[in-house]
């Protein structure tokens, strides 16, 4: 059992991770060596290969930081900093997470409500669906600054709400599409059956359409939460935000601090992984409790 689990789940993942690390280190040596060699030339020294490799791994502003450097940076800016510190990635991560969750909740609610409207009304389908599709073709990076600038003008203070709206804007769509499909999952016989019971519209919805849509909903939520995180980070990029993972990336870039960019990026990736894992876990628990999974 454990052997199988190791072979089937852990080993493939580890293989890919190892390959990525190998490529990464190779790339780091290759990309950072030009600086090393230039420095050596200026000092009139010749370096052995080992020395070159050693130097490419320990520059303070490398073109591409090596994984262990990023790990060290993350360690420094999480464990070794107070969470309230402006330099703590946990602090910034929380700012981003808050906006992500708010946007996710908002986007999910909007997606579900729109899906219900679309499934129950032909007019809504004809009028809403094209706009929903068009909304996703507008690049969010173009829209985000406008939202950030406009909202304070109509009296909404703070950065949380604009970021949550940007985040919701990205995350409602997969939920909408999944829920439309899910609410339409019952086939004709199942709906006819409800009719022979003389069930009301609400009863058909609650007892048939809604439960049928649950597996579809969770699949969409997994995509939705990742999109919500992207939205929150994009919302932190424009117009001088100083807090959040997105702001860290931007500031790192402006101040030429690659380590900070990469640490924030890695944290965002880890956060995304965790969020998807949590939704996946909720999915498994829910479907199991509903009897739809073994």
């Amino acid at each position: 059992m454990t052997g199988d689990w190791m072979r089937e789940k852990v080993l493939p993942v580890l293989t890919v991770v190892a390959a990525i690390f190998a490529l990464w280190y190779g790339a780091a040596i290759w990309m950072n060596s030009s600086w090393t060699l230039a420095q050596a030339e200026r000092a009139g020294k010749t370096l052995t290969f080992t020395e070159i490799v050693k130097d490419t791994m320990s520059q303070s502003r490398p073109k591409l930081p090596a994984p262990h450097q990023i790990a060290a940076e993350i360690w420094k800016s999480t464990v070794q900093k107070k969470i309230t510190s402006k330099r703590s990635l946990i602090f910034h991560g929380w700012i981003t997470l808050r906006a992500t969750l708010a946007g996710f909740a908002l986007g999910t609610a909007i997606g579900i409500l729109m899906a219900i409207a679309i499934v129950y009304s032909r007019t809504m389908e004809l009028s809403l669906m094209p706009w929903a599709v068009i909304s996703q073709t507008i690049p969010i990076v173009a829209l985000a600054p406008m939202i950030v600038v406009v909202l304070p003008k109509i009296g909404i203070e703070g950065r949380l709400i604009p970021k949550a709206i940007i985040s919701a804007y990205l995350c409602y769509f997969p939920v909408l599409v999944g829920m439309v499909k899910g609410l339409r999952a019952p086939h004709r016989e199942q709906l006819d059956l409800m009719k022979t019971y003389n069930a009301s519209g609400l009863q058909s919805f609650l007892k048939l359409r809604l439960p049928s849509s649950v597996p579809y909903l969770f699949t969409s939520l997994k995509i939705g939460i990742a999109a919500a995180l992207v939205g929150a980070i994009v919302g932190e990029l424009p117009t001088g935000a100083v807090r959040g993972l997105g702001a860290r990336i931007l500031i790192g870039d402006q101040f030429g601090n690659p380590m900070q960019i990469w640490a924030a990026l890695t944290c965002a990736a880890i956060l995304a992984g965790l969020l998807i894992m949590i939704v996946g876990l909720l999915q498994r628990i829910t479907l199991k409790r509903m009897g739809m999974a073994e």
Binding site: E189, Q190, D192, L193, L208, P211, V214, G291, M292
Partner: peptide
């Protein structure tokens, strides 16, 4: 109906 059509969640 021809298909039993039982709800899998019940």
């Amino acid at each position: 109906f021809q298909a039993a059509g039982l709800y899998p969640w019940r």
